[in-house]
């Protein structure tokens, strides 16, 4: 099997912070690979190393089977977290400029730009300065910029962050369309589990510079496998809650999180009355309770003890 990306033992240490540690990853060609993880998990560092923006302190990286170098990195198209477009330039100018960086120029560039603009729904805006575009349009333009040179690997860092749900869904459709046409490999990072679920064929959960779980959507969900109940009570000291709930009938596993506890079990809904009673007897008042089938979020929460959505705004890597 040909891998678009093969990372082996990548380590990147900043002054007093380990961004990546002995990190290994293989991304199959033509697949959509999602990187999920909280802030500081090392996603952006990994992307920067893949894009050639940083060098690892240790480890190797191969792109399409060859050691990463200038030549094969030119096969990568990247759309950073930010829109990464020049606001004063028109859509067309932005595309022509970024195309030129990859040696795409002249009529070919213009044709490609028109094509991308039309396909991404920016045709009517081709001569509009990008500062006047909506958030979604800017994202699409940023994506178009990354696609100007017909890359074999597309890296999208938080492609839909900050977009409203409708625009986000539209963006997903656009991405799917682009990928179906280009047959490129897509690596994306996201906070949105539903985005990963909607787009990614394979997902890696990252935390503290290492992969904590990797696999397809199903493979990951199987890590949780049962119903999950999230419970929040007052005063709600997590360790105390775990002590109370552990051993309760129907609860296979209790995990303390910073937001309460997560319980796993086969039929938690039926057992909830008994659990509530036990809590009440121990001075806890349940204020929030939800029972759901496991999602990626649940998997992540279970694996890392942290909610991805509440990981906060992603700051640029230093």
């Amino acid at each position: 099997m040909e891998y678009a990306i093969e990372a082996q033992g990548l380590t990147r240490i900043y002054q007093n912070k380990v961004a990546l540690y002995n990190f290994s990853l293989k991304v199959e060609r033509g697949k959509i690979f999602g990187l999920l993880g909280p802030n500081g998990a090392g996603k952006s560092t990994l992307i920067r190393i893949i894009a050639g923006l940083e060098k690892p302190d240790d480890g190797t990286l191969k792109i399409f089977g060859s050691a990463a170098d200038v030549k094969n990195r030119k096969r990568i198209g990247i759309a950073p977290q930010e829109n990464a477009i020049y606001p004063l330039l028109t859509c067309m100018e932005n595309l022509l400029y970024f195309g030129s960086l990859y040696g795409v120029g002249g009529k070919k560039a213009r044709t490609r730009a028109v094509y991308l603009l039309e396909n991404l729904g920016l045709g009517p805006k081709k001569d509009t300065p990008s500062e006047f575009l909506s958030g979604g349009m800017k994202r699409r333009l940023s994506l178009a910029c990354a696609l100007m040179h017909k890359p074999d690997i597309i890296i999208l860092d938080e492609p839909t962050t900050g977009l409203d749900p409708a625009t986000r869904i539209s963006m997903w459709a656009t991405l799917k369309q682009v990928l179906s046409e280009s047959k490129a490999t897509l690596i994306l990072t996201t906070h949105y589990m539903e985005e990963a679920e909607a787009l990614c064929e394979k997902i890696a959960f990252m935390n503290s510079g290492v992969i904590v779980a990797e696999g397809t959507l199903d493979e990951l969900k199987k890590l949780v496998g049962k119903e999950i109940a999230k419970l929040k009570s007052v005063p709600g000291e997590p360790k105390h809650l775990v002590e109370i709930i552990k051993g309760t009938k129907g609860v296979d596993n209790v995990t303390a999180t910073e937001h309460g506890v997560i319980m796993e079990g086969k039929d938690l809904g039926a057992e909830m009355a008994g659990i509530s009673r036990a809590l009440k007897d121990n001075g806890e008042t349940v204020v929030e309770l939800s029972i759901s089938k496991p999602s990626l979020e649940d998997v992540f929460l279970k694996l890392t003890g942290t909610k991805l959505r509440e990981a906060g705004k992603i700051e640029p890597d230093k």
Partner: peptide
């Protein structure tokens, strides 16, 4: 703005 990242990546 990310443009520099894009340029470096090029």
């Amino acid at each position: 703005g990310g443009t520099l990242t894009r340029i470096y990546a090029a």
